[in-house]
């Protein structure tokens, strides 16, 4: 009975984790479901074995299956079915049929220095030259943001979208998809020097763990001026209501 309770409790949590995929088409990745379930099963097991009586009750059916002479038929059946199931899984290939998962760092580490426009930028100390104007001259700052917006809508919005949500016209054809700038987990996490480096060097400038070979982001140093990049960064933060990370 306790073994059944254990199995049903684990099944309940498994179905709970599968629910976003069933009902919302936003599945929790199978890699994460496996990790979650591993610890959920262990926790349920721990709770059910705190007392000796609990542990005995939980394992009694397994013990009986192995030791009880009257369960010989069931035992033999289980001992045949289990290896056969393992053989079938091995033959079937399990998850190996799917294309391999991609372990890609979306925000890989920047280099300490980067080159562009004939000079070297130290990313540890690099700052947006227009940022200080935000307080000194708010009106001038507004017009800089507007200019940044023009740069954005001439160059970036095709992929990153008119709402900066990563859902531009071309986005559906790209894999990996363009990043959204909205929300608190992309540019809000980053210093402006990082964003500058990403726009400057694009996909080809990513380190290997960033999936440089699969990113479609162009290196904008060939298309935009240094000033234009800084202005578009002002626009990205201003439009999304995010503040650049300062440390």
């Amino acid at each position: 009975m306790r073994l059944l309770k254990f199995a049903l409790t684990s099944l309940f949590f498994y179905l709970l984790l599968k629910a976003p995929g069933f009902f919302w088409d936003k599945p929790i990745p199978s890699s994460l479901v496996s990790m979650y379930m591993f610890f959920i099963v262990i926790t349920v097991l721990l709770v059910m074995t705190i007392t000796d009586e609990g542990a005995r009750g939980l394992f009694a059916p397994i013990r009986a299956l192995v030791e009880d002479p009257s369960k010989k038929l069931v035992r033999n059946a289980v001992f045949v079915i289990l290896p056969l199931a393992a053989v079938f899984l091995a033959y079937d290939g399990g998850g190996l049929k799917a294309t391999p998962s991609e372990l890609r760092a979306t925000h890989p580490a920047p280099p300490p220095l980067t080159r562009g426009y004939g000079k070297t930028f130290d990313l540890a100390t690099l700052e947006n030259p227009f940022r200080k104007i935000e307080k000194e001259d708010p009106e001038a700052f507004k017009s800089l943001v507007k200019e940044g917006g023009e740069v954005y809508f001439k160059n970036c919005f095709f992929c990153h979208g008119d709402k900066l949500d990563g859902r531009g016209h071309y986005a559906h054809a790209l894999d990996p998809k363009p990043l959204p700038f909205t929300g608190g987990d992309t540019i809000a996490q980053l210093q402006e020097s990082y964003v500058f480096w990403r726009i400057l060097k694009g996909g080809p400038g990513l380190p290997r763990e960033g999936g440089s070979s699969i990113s479609a982001m162009p290196a904008w140093e060939k298309e935009l001026t240094e000033e234009e990049i800084w202005k578009v960064i002002l626009f990205l933060y201003d439009y999304t209501g995010n503040t650049p990370r300062s440390w």
Binding site: L32, A98, T106
Partner: peptide, 24 residues
Amino acid sequence: PHTLILTPEEASSLGGQYHPLLGP
């Protein structure tokens, strides 16, 4: 994790490497 390990099918459903529910 923030950046998830995804199969291409999962990546396609989610539209990126972040899950809308689990991303935060």
